[in-house]
């Protein structure tokens, strides 16, 4: 990067700010020298360095989508308690890093006064990672933030405590493209379309480039077709997997469908290598309706899963390990979820 006069020259390709400039001094002093950690209580842990220095972490559930005002509020807290430093986690939590133990409780009080929970460590329900949803994505089949808010309100106690058999990682993707890469979670909720995009035949010619629309389809379901004398496309319903990729390049192929869009639930995935291999989540509920603002059907299904898991799993068993031990037939029996032909994988790329 050329050393340019900032403010007058257009800067490109500089990469991210260098992380060393953003590490709290206690981390700089102990970088790579951490000896062990202990969980002091839900949402609070201490890391102890070879030097004896102690770093306290307070983990706060954040909403992922945040306002500039929220950013300023947490910045004020970071200034007051953490020398102006703070970090986020891979699950969209916010973490305050403290070098003084006596600051933990006052900080927690202020965080809670802002309306944010402290927790998400150890045998808890971690923060639900999620995608954009109706808020900001064109192919979404559900309202990511809305469902997640409803779920976290309902299962708040599992976030702020450590009462579950093991950690439960939950994630929400608003369509099967799974931007949130949710498919390896203990509980994954995925927005589902059930019908192909609608072809607005009279608008295709004006709004879309037909070759790129055809090329956008991963399963060759979009084909050229002249409709009422105008160049347009048709969609092979048998092939379509409802990914919405054609709609991304052609606004005349809307896929959102209030009647038919909903969510599916997959469970028993994990990414950690501890004890058992990483594995993807498997289908347990093929479809539930979008029922804003509180999504009661989704909440009830998740409650059924969490309660069966809490009741049946041994201490330390992740959802995947619990089901491996008892078997899927038993899981469907104790939860009462209906096992249908949709649960049997029949997907083949042709």
């Amino acid at each position: 990067m050329p050393d340019v006069d900032k403010g007058t020259v257009r800067i490109t390709d500089i990469g991210p700010p260098h992380y060393e400039d953003f590490l709290p001094p206690i981390i700089k002093r102990n970088y790579g020298k951490w000896l062990y950690h202990e969980i002091l209580k839900p949402g609070v842990m201490v890391h102890v360095s070879e030097s004896g220095e102690k770093l306290y972490t307070v983990r706060v559930g954040s909403t992922r989508i945040v306002s500039s005002d929220f950013v300023r509020e947490i910045s004020d807290l970071a200034d007051k308690y953490c020398g102006g430093y703070l970090k986020f986690t891979t699950r969209n939590n916010l973490e305050f890093l403290l070098d003084k133990e006596e600051n933990i409780e006052p900080l927690i009080k202020e965080v809670q006064a802002l309306g944010f929970p402290v927790g998400g460590i150890d045998h808890s329900l971690g923060n639900i990672v999620h995608t954009q949803g109706w808020l900001h994505c064109h192919t979404s089949a559900s309202y990511a933030s809305g469902v997640v808010k409803a779920l976290m309100d309902e299962f708040y106690d599992y976030f702020v405590s450590d009462k579950l058999p093991a950690k439960v990682r939950m994630a929400f993707a608003c369509c099967l493209n799974m931007c949130g890469s949710v498919g390896a979670s203990d509980i994954a909720i995925v927005g589902m379309h059930r019908r192909p995009p609608r072809v607005m035949a009279d608008r295709v010619k004006d709004l879309c480039e037909i070759p790129s629309t055809i090329a956008a389809c991963p399963v060759d379901a979009v084909r050229p077709k002249t409709i009422d004398g105008k160049p347009s496309v048709e969609i092979d319903e048998d092939r379509c997997v409802y990914c919405g990729n054609c709609y991304t390049v052609c606004p005349a192929l809307p896929i959102a469908d209030p009647l038919n869009d909903g969510v599916a639930i997959f469970i028993g995935g994990k990414v950690s290598n501890a004890r058992t291999k990483p594995t993807f989540s498997k289908l347990v509920v093929p479809w539930l309706p979008n029922n804003p603002p509180r999504w009661p059907e989704v909440i009830e299904a998740v409650r059924t899963i969490l309660e069966a898991y809490k009741e049946g799993a041994r201490k330390g068993e992740r959802v995947a390990e619990w089901i491996d031990r008892i078997g899927w037939p038993k899981f469907f029996k104790i939860t009462g979820f209906e096992f249908t032909k949709y649960h049997i994988d029949d997907f083949r790329i042709r």
Binding site: P17, Y19, F22, P24, S75, A78
Partner: peptide
């Protein structure tokens, strides 16, 4: 920023 570290 790598590690998601920031300053206020």
């Amino acid at each position: 920023i790598e590690g998601f570290f920031y300053t206020s």
